[in-house]
Computed example of a mutant assay.
Amino acid sequence: MRLLHTMLRVGNLERSIAFYTEVLGMRLLRRQDYPEGRFTLAFVGYQDEADGAVIELTHNWDTSSYELGNGFGHIAVAVPDAYRACEEIRARGGKVVREAGPMKHGSTVIAFIEDPDGYKIELIQRDAEHG
């Protein structure tokens, strides 16, 4: 078994695809409209679906926003330098909500950003060897 994807419902698909591809550097892997169900699925990720987990962006055509709820935590992305990643993400229009620095009660360097719908994305500083 392996993890396939995390699904997020988004209010504006084009805005979300732009965020994940242009701000976070993922690729749009596939996109499919389902006119009968009035929704579109778009899959984004750093690698092909056969090689790793991706994010499924679900856009229900008749819904422009969602309440995030308190059960969802965050998506985590490994980065080589969290401080630099925050600078680059901010320069590309992304929103940093917790600056890079050591986590509470630990030494791992982390940061948090938000996507256009308010979903949290944790940046975890890891060297290339530990991905």
Rank of each mutant, 00 (worst) to 15 (best):
V97K: 11
A50F: 03
G131W: 13
E99S: 13
I124C: 08
T40A: 04
D115G: 09
M26H: 11
E49N: 11
R92P: 06
L57A: 05
V109K: 12
K120A: 09
A78G: 07
E114N: 13
Y20V: 13
M103F: 07
T58S: 15
V97G: 09
G69D: 04
R30S: 14
L8W: 02
R15N: 13
K120H: 14
D33N: 13
Y83S: 09
V10S: 04
L57N: 01
A128Q: 11
E99H: 10
E56I: 08
G11E: 09
R38N: 15
G94F: 02
T6L: 12
A82H: 00
D33Q: 11
H74V: 05
D127G: 07
L3K: 05
V109N: 04
G118A: 12
G94Y: 03
R9Y: 12
V77F: 08
A82C: 01
L3P: 02
T63E: 14
A111L: 00
F43T: 03
T58I: 05
A91D: 12
A50S: 15
M26S: 12
T108V: 15
A100Y: 08
R38S: 15
A85W: 01
R31N: 05
E129K: 07
L24D: 03
L41F: 14
V96P: 00
L68M: 11
E67F: 10
M26P: 03
T63I: 15
A18C: 10
G131V: 13
I75K: 04
E129C: 04
H59P: 01
G93S: 02
D48H: 07
E88K: 07
G71H: 11
E36M: 14
A82K: 00
L123W: 04
L28S: 04
L123G: 02
H5P: 09
Q47F: 07
V23K: 07
D48T: 04
F19K: 09
G11S: 10
L29E: 12
E36Q: 15
R92T: 05
M26V: 10
M26D: 10
R31E: 10
R15S: 11
D127P: 02
A128T: 10
E88C: 01
E56H: 09
I55E: 04
R15D: 13
G71W: 05
R30W: 02
A91G: 03
V10L: 10
D51F: 02
Y34H: 15
D117I: 05
M7T: 15
